[in-house]
Amino acid sequence: MTNIVVAFTILVILSLSVMRILSDKRKGKSCTGCAEGGSCSTKPIQDTGKHSIDKRIKIKQLT
């Protein structure tokens, strides 16, 4: 009897943990329990290279 209670408790604890991990993964967090507000999930931006002067003029144009 006690065995069943203990086994059940362990199962509940583990499933709660796994559920939290899965739900955080679904939210796009890379780590469960992120201390940085989960902002890491944002996708890397494409425009990282050096901007050419033409591009900058284009930007000015838009401004």
Binding site: S17, V18, R20, I21, T32, G33, C34, A35
Partner: peptide
């Protein structure tokens, strides 16, 4: 406090499952 909370959550999820 926010970091501490995150630390506890991490311990109770990923660390717990890994330990098991």
């Amino acid at each position: 406090l926010s970091r501490a909370k995150a630390f506890v959550i991490k311990a109770a999820t990923i660390i717990l499952v890994c330990n098991a």
